[in-house]
Simulated assay, not measured.
Amino acid sequence: MANLPIVQFEKKILETVEQNPVVVIIGETGSGKSTQLSQMLHRKGYTDSGIVAVTQPRRVAAVSVSRRVAQELGVKLGEEDDIEKLVSKLEDKVRSLAEGSCMDAIILPLHGSLPPEMQVRVFNPPPPNCRRFIVATNIAETSLTVDGVVYVIDSGYVKQRQYNPATGMYSLDVVQISK
């Protein structure tokens, strides 16, 4: 966590957010509003059941803030996401099962920002007596055949880049799949 002025107010900010449906925080440039508030809310658990969005009026600022937060959290920019969260939840669930209640499982992510050497792991057959779970974006939708797949579970949603004429900006939105 960075040592920025806003950090000293974390407890008060979180208390205020819990007690109010809308909170406006004002602080000087460089105080940590953009990079620290989202992390405070994440640590408090707000991202367990929803998302925390940080808006920036300029693309350069938005990219800069994203890089800074990813660096501070120790994750690769753009990987934290939804796929990694689901992989983590599945791994926790498999670990929590009673011994002998099911066979071993290997859980593999598959998305476009994953390095190629990690992507090819989904094509390797699982070890004996081991079930393979592949958590994928729509990268696996076309031109890709993974041998041994028995079931496909589709959420019915996709992240899609969309233009908003009101703001004049593009955004990556989760929308229902059309077919």
Score class of each variant (00 low, 15 high):
D154T: 07
R43C: 11
H42V: 05
I51M: 14
Y163L: 14
V23F: 09
Y157P: 00
V17E: 03
S171Q: 11
P127M: 06
Q160A: 12
A53K: 10
N20G: 00
I153Y: 01
Q160F: 05
E117K: 13
R43Q: 15
K44N: 11
A61M: 03
Y46G: 00
I177S: 00
F9H: 09
T55F: 01
T29G: 09
L90F: 02
E18A: 00
G112A: 10
I83F: 05
L90P: 01
P165T: 15
S49H: 14
V175G: 04
D48W: 06
K44F: 04
I51Q: 15
S66D: 08
K11G: 00
K44L: 09
K179M: 01
G32S: 04
R59N: 09
P126G: 01
Q119D: 12
E84R: 13
L86A: 02
L14A: 10
Q119G: 08
I26P: 03
K179C: 02
S64K: 09
N129W: 13
S34D: 08
T29M: 09
G78Q: 01
Y46S: 04
Y46E: 02
C102A: 12
V158W: 02
E28D: 10
L108C: 01
N124T: 10
G30E: 11
I6R: 02
H111L: 07
L86M: 11
I153C: 00
V87C: 07
F133K: 02
P5T: 12
K11Y: 00
Y163Q: 11
M1E: 09
M169A: 11
L144D: 08
D154H: 03
E79H: 05
T142S: 11
E80T: 12
G78T: 05
A166P: 06
P165R: 06
A136C: 13
T167C: 13
M169Y: 15
L110H: 09
V22D: 13
G74Y: 06
T167W: 12
K85T: 12
L108H: 00
D147Q: 05
Q162D: 08
V23I: 11
N20R: 02
R67G: 04
P116D: 11
N124P: 04
L73P: 05
V87D: 10
P109S: 00
V175S: 05
V120W: 02
G30L: 09
V24A: 12
H111M: 07
R43V: 11
A61W: 03
Y46P: 02
K12A: 09
T145P: 01
R59T: 09
K12S: 01
S49R: 14
E91I: 13
S178W: 00
A70E: 04
V158L: 06
E91A: 06
I106Y: 01
T47D: 03
I13Y: 02
V158P: 06
K159V: 09
V7M: 07
K12V: 15
Q56W: 00
M40E: 08
P57Y: 08
Q176C: 06
S64I: 03
E91P: 03
K11N: 01
G74H: 13
L77K: 03
N20D: 00
D92I: 03
K12Y: 12
E99S: 15
A53V: 12
L73G: 06
V60S: 01
E18P: 01
R95Y: 14
V87P: 04
V122N: 05
